[in-house]
């Protein structure tokens, strides 16, 4: 009984689920709605961050450090991804003088 009354005081894991879902959906909307390659990359970062937070929340609530280690590795991969992605954006800007992704339709057909 004591543990139940104590656990009622915590932030329920559902709150984290809702919050991360909203953040993730904002990221998805950003990827779909924007034409600027830089902003698309930023929206992807937003999605990665929402997933990271959810992973860390579950890891803490289940008392398992593996989740937080995973978050660490996801951050590692995200940093490498951003470095490469921004280098690609710089190259795109140099060749087409724009970072509008709708111009880059040479590989479409």
């Amino acid at each position: 009984m004591n543990s139940i009354t104590q656990s009622m005081q915590f932030i329920p894991i559902g709150y984290y689920l809702f919050f991360c879902t909203m953040l993730f959906c904002i990221g998805v909307t950003g990827v779909l709605i924007k034409r600027n390659a830089l902003l698309i990359l930023m929206s992807v970062e937003l999605m990665i961050n929402s997933i990271n937070l959810l992973l860390a929340a579950f890891s803490t609530y289940l008392n398992d450090p593996a989740g937080q280690i995973f978050v660490f590795f996801i951050m590692v991969v995200a940093a490498a991804e951003v470095a490469i992605g921004l280098a690609i954006i710089v190259v795109i800007y140099r060749t087409t003088h724009s970072i509008d992704i709708d111009i880059l339709n040479k590989l479409k057909w």
Partner: peptide
């Protein structure tokens, strides 16, 4: 796009609604 994103959010929230785990430790 906004309708699609909102629908995705509603679907995901509908899936997660009422989900709760037994908390093993004080967070």
């Amino acid at each position: 796009v906004i309708i699609a994103g909102g629908t995705l959010m509603i679907v995901l929230i509908g899936i997660f609604r009422g989900y709760d785990i037994a908390i093993k430790t004080d967070p």
